[in-house]
Amino acid sequence: MDRNVNTPINTSTGWLKSIAWAEILGNYGAQLVFLTLIAACALSTPKFFSLGTLEITLLDVFPVMLVALGMTLVISSGGIDISVGAIMAISGAVTVALYTSGVGWVLSMGCGIGAAALCGLFNGVLISIFRIQPIIVTLVVMIAGRGLARRIQVDPTTSLKSTPFDTLGLYRIAGKVPVQIVIMLAVIAVMLFVVKKTVFAKNTEAIGDNPRAARLVGVNTLTTTVGVYVVCGVLCAIAGIMTIARIAQLNAVTLGGFIELDAIAAVAIGGTPFSGGRARILGTITGAIIVILVGVIVGLNKMPDDYAKVFKALIIVIAMWAQRRK
């Protein structure tokens, strides 16, 4: 049961032995896999090291990164959220429905994010008050949410050409850096701060580790659990809205489809234990990039996307093996 990975290493038996290889592999497995992958890419893909490749990778990674960061928090609280894709679709559908009915674009986006926060609230309340298993609650939201998003949208696809969203999606800060990349860096910074420095994250991990003990030491499990799912929902909303802006089209059926799988894979590769109790943000960041990078490499080598799926599975297995705890 001892999950403490910060045990001091016995340094008296020579420096080479003092390097706990298992420890390094366990703690930095994702980073090691990442470096290996980069090396493999550099060998296999011509012109791999270029700003263009970096830009494409970061643009592709954007939605998965945001969702995976939220997912890390959720998983560290001992839960899981498979409704993330549906929440993306709902926020997108609400935003576009309001915008097309004449509401200003900023307010529409605010309402889209609000709708996602409500979904998160629903998840959190059902999980912490009604004590329903997180996978069941979020499964319900996943199924119902997708249907709801389709009802809100009415049309199968809605064009956002020549709207502020169109401009926003391709906007480059200082004419160089796509806005998505800047948002992503900002979210990463905030999440790192939250997880490393705030009581909220400590409470979340405490709940994930042992909910009863957490309650007994005075952690408010209700507000913390709700908070976790709301944060996850809001991150999904940002991912969803920026995705529809990027393509200048809303398709509530495909928006955020299967993103929960990529996000969960990113968290797994990053080494956050699924039993809860620990959020490894840096690991998730690496994990998200790995998950997407595989697809980019396959695309750059003009191979069919099907290979990416097999490689992804392989990498998950390798990462899990590297980080296995004895």
Binding site: K47, G52, L300
Partner: peptide, 14 residues
């Protein structure tokens, strides 16, 4: 549209 846009981005980069 989304899948096609991403595919084309990669084709252009390659």
């Amino acid at each position: 549209k989304e899948i096609a846009m991403k595919a084309m981005e990669k084709i252009l980069q390659s």
